[in-house]
Amino acid sequence: MKNIYTIIKKELSAYFNSPIAYIFLSVFLLSSAWLFFQNFFLNNQVSMRNYFYFLPWLFLIFIPAITMRSFAEEKKNGTLEILLTLPIKDSDLVLGKFLAGFIFVLTAFLFSLVIPVSIKNLGDLDFGPIIGGYLGAFLLAGSYLSLGVFISSLSKNQIVAFILSMFITFVLFIIGTPFVLNFVPGFMTSFFSFLGIGSHFNNIARGVIDTRDLVYYFSFIFFFIWLTVKNLESRNYN
């Protein structure tokens, strides 16, 4: 546990000691607020449904931007060799990196709470879907992060890691959407919609918390963290 904590601390200070964190947070908050308020007054409805509708699309760009450096940079600089010869488990390292990314995303969410606070006096705000929306967003971010960390561990090049993570999360997101499901043979639709990240998110964001969705997200996160650990261990066999 202590090792994980040490790694989280180092990762977070690497974010916050450089301009990356501040640029990231401001661009994320500005763009999400803009996208949200753009139609907010036209809709004439006090709800955050729209916010959670486009959040997955924003994540598609922002989460890979957080994870791209996690392992790729260490590999490129050679510092990974220092870390892997220290008396810590590979899994501590991976978990530390993943959790640091997660805490960073939580910080961004914390600032986004300005939106519900500022609109709650404009009318009857139903907090149920907002809580559900945030919960869904956490899980979604966790999934994207675990995938991004894994992709980053495959490459030495941050840009490659960024584009690849973005592409794969995009594919995983759209395969569950009705648009794609229309083109999929009938017997495969339920499989695809279960596999897609998006469909699970929509359920939770509506305020419906189903164990199947939770199981999906947790196994997704666990799977990619496990895969990252295995990938680090594979250096032994090459």
Partner: peptide, 16 residues
């Protein structure tokens, strides 16, 4: 690993 101290080739460090 606790008994070993290692200075790697080219000595990579965290510059920031």
């Amino acid at each position: 690993k606790r008994k070993i101290g290692y200075l790697t080739e080219n000595n990579p460090l965290y510059d920031d």
